[in-house]
Simulated assay, not measured.
Amino acid sequence: MIKVGITGQSGFMGMHLYNYLGTKSEEIERIPFDKAYFTETELLESFVVSCDVIVHIAAMNRHKDEQVIYDTNTHLVEQLITACEKTGATPKIIFSSSTQEARDNLYGKSKRDGRKALEQWAAKSNASVISLLIPNVFGPFGKPYYNSVVATFCHQLNHDETPEIHNDGTVNLIYINELSEVIYNHIVATDSSKTELISVEYTASKKVSEILNLLVNFKANYVDNGVVPDLSDKFEKSLFNTFTSYIPKDYFPRKFTKHTDDRGAFVEIMRANTAGQSSFSTTVPGITRGNHYHTRKVERFAVISGKAKIQLRKINTSEVFEYDLDGDEPAYVDMPIWYTHNIKNTGDTELITLFWINEPFDSEDPDTYFEVV
């Protein structure tokens, strides 16, 4: 087992990496980190001693005074080095740097100088430092007006605000799950390299207007009309999963349109511009199904007969969202990624639920991780 700690664990990148490593529990033991460690010397020293690998992500990205950014980020690196020197700890350190190292701003300079300080420590201590030059990162749960333009646009569109493009430049992007995989590969690598600077390849290059147009279409088709878009393109699926993470939780459940006549009733369950797999289940009263989460799959639960309670909880948080559905008024709830979810028959008759998911089940790559809501 490799013991891995992540500074900045509660931030956007740190939280995603922490959760990603949680899916690798057969080889990774996560060492919890709290930002208070940077104000409590003994706690930081205990942390560095406990880790085989430290992924140093903690940093300030934005501030009205750029000097504060520089001073904060370089000080965090200094504290980490001091803790290692005082305890004699020599964990492999994976440093989250940025392509902005090459730019003339104090954020980029803070990353460059922090990297060089870590490299000097590694040379003296016979330790290993892998520095990653990371392009623009996007993904679910990013902080609007802080982490990325994608986060800002997603927030605005889901809160009835009008996004504006100030500079329609080309943005080189990597999805947070892809970045987490890159970092994971460096965590488990057994090469003997002591100091290495690696440029992380971007996986998509888009104009800002292209990104906004896709998000506007998600709003018009999915939020306003319940139509799942074409998810065959990897970037667009990642962008869609990012977009849906900003939809307010009171958006669900969504009631279907029920057409009735003397023959009975007709309900359209799903309209999608993408392939997928449909299935249904019957559940006896009192039984709960699910209690798992996905990291990439788009999934819909539609209750068409009986009564049910659907519960959702974001991984590593405590708040539970609950939705009561009744087949007398057929409705659906879509499952966001990184939310463990379940469905319970709360009635006294059989529950019938229709499930749709955007990819057929693959036992070799199920993307299904069990955790009780």
Results as ranks from 00 to 15, higher is better:
265 A>D: 12
66 E>T: 08
328 D>N: 13
312 L>N: 04
320 V>T: 14
316 N>H: 11
3 K>A: 01
358 N>R: 03
28 I>V: 07
315 I>V: 14
101 E>M: 11
165 I>H: 11
89 A>H: 07
86 K>G: 00
323 Y>G: 04
207 K>C: 02
172 N>H: 15
182 V>W: 06
211 I>P: 01
264 G>T: 08
148 S>V: 09
57 I>T: 13
63 H>V: 11
23 T>R: 10
289 R>G: 08
234 K>G: 00
276 G>L: 10
133 L>W: 12
42 E>D: 14
95 F>C: 02
207 K>Q: 14
223 V>H: 05
60 M>H: 00
325 L>E: 07
1 M>Y: 01
190 T>D: 08
226 G>N: 10
71 D>C: 01
123 A>K: 14
289 R>N: 14
294 H>F: 02
354 L>H: 13
216 V>M: 14
172 N>P: 00
85 E>Q: 14
105 N>M: 07
283 T>H: 04
72 T>S: 13
52 D>R: 00
51 C>F: 05
189 A>C: 01
92 K>D: 02
315 I>P: 02
246 Y>S: 06
5 G>T: 05
274 T>G: 15
29 E>Y: 04
148 S>N: 11
182 V>K: 07
172 N>A: 09
108 G>R: 07
19 N>E: 09
245 S>T: 05
276 G>R: 09
157 L>G: 06
289 R>F: 10
111 K>A: 08
257 T>L: 12
141 F>E: 08
219 K>A: 06
147 N>A: 15
362 D>I: 04
98 S>L: 11
28 I>L: 01
